[in-house]
C-alpha cells in the first residue's frame, strides 16, 4: 500500500477522531473560549490602533516644538511674535493635519500587512516573505 492509498483509507477515521476531541471538549475550556471570543469582540469596539495611541502625544509634542521655535526675534532683539502668529497658526494646523494623515496611514498599513505579505507571496511564489526560497 502506498501513502496515497493509506490516506484514502484512513483520513475519514482521523477526521472523525479529531472531531470527537472537539465535541468532547470539557466545559471549562468551552467557557474560556466563550470568554476569549467575547473579549475579542469587545476589543474590536474599543479600537485603539497604533495611530490613535500615539497621534495625540505626537501632535502635542509637535505643537510645543512649533511654539518654541516660532518665538522668533529679529537681529535687533525685537519680538517678531505678532508678525509670526499668522504663520505659526498655519504651521500648527498643517502639522496637525500631517499627524492625522500619518496616523491613518499607519493604521491602514498594519491592517493590510497580512494582505501585502500574501500579495508578495503570490507574485514570488518560490520565495517566502523574507525573500528566501522555501523548501
Amino acid at each position: 500500500m502506498n501513502d496515497d492509498k493509506w490516506l484514502q483509507q484512513n483520513q475519514d477515521a482521523i477526521r472523525k477522531r479529531l472531531d470527537a476531541c472537539v465535541d468532547e471538549m470539557d466545559a471549562a475550556d468551552l467557557f474560556r473560549l466563550r470568554q476569549a471570543r467575547q473579549q475579542a469582540l469587545d476589543s474590536g469596539s474599543r479600537k485603539t490602533g497604533f495611530g490613535r495611541k500615539f497621534a495625540l502625544p505626537v501632535v502635542a509634542a509637535s505643537l510645543v516644538l512649533v511654539i518654541l521655535l516660532g518665538r522668533g526675534f529679529d537681529n535687533n532683539g525685537l519680538d517678531l511674535q505678532p508678525e509670526l502668529n499668522g504663520q505659526q497658526n498655519n504651521v500648527i494646523a498643517a502639522l496637525a493635519d500631517v499627524e492625522l494623515l500619518a496616523a491613518q496611514e499607519q493604521t491602514e498599513f498594519y491592517e493590510n500587512l497580512d494582505f501585502y505579505e500574501w500579495l508578495a507571496l503570490e507574485q514570488n511564489p518560490e520565495k517566502g516573505m523574507n525573500g528566501q526560497v522555501n523548501g
Binding site: 501513502d3 496515497d4 493509506w6 490516506l7 484512513n10 482521523i14 505579505e117 500574501w118 507571496l121 511564489p125 518560490e126 520565495k127 517566502g128 516573505m129 522555501n134 523548501g135
Partner: peptide
Amino acid sequence: TAKAMGISSGSVKTHFSRAVHSLR
C-alpha cells in the same frame, strides 16, 4: 493552505506528503 501558512504551494505538497508518510 499555502496562504494560511505563508509558504509556497510546492512546500505545502512536500510537507503534506512527508506528514502522510510519517503518520502511515
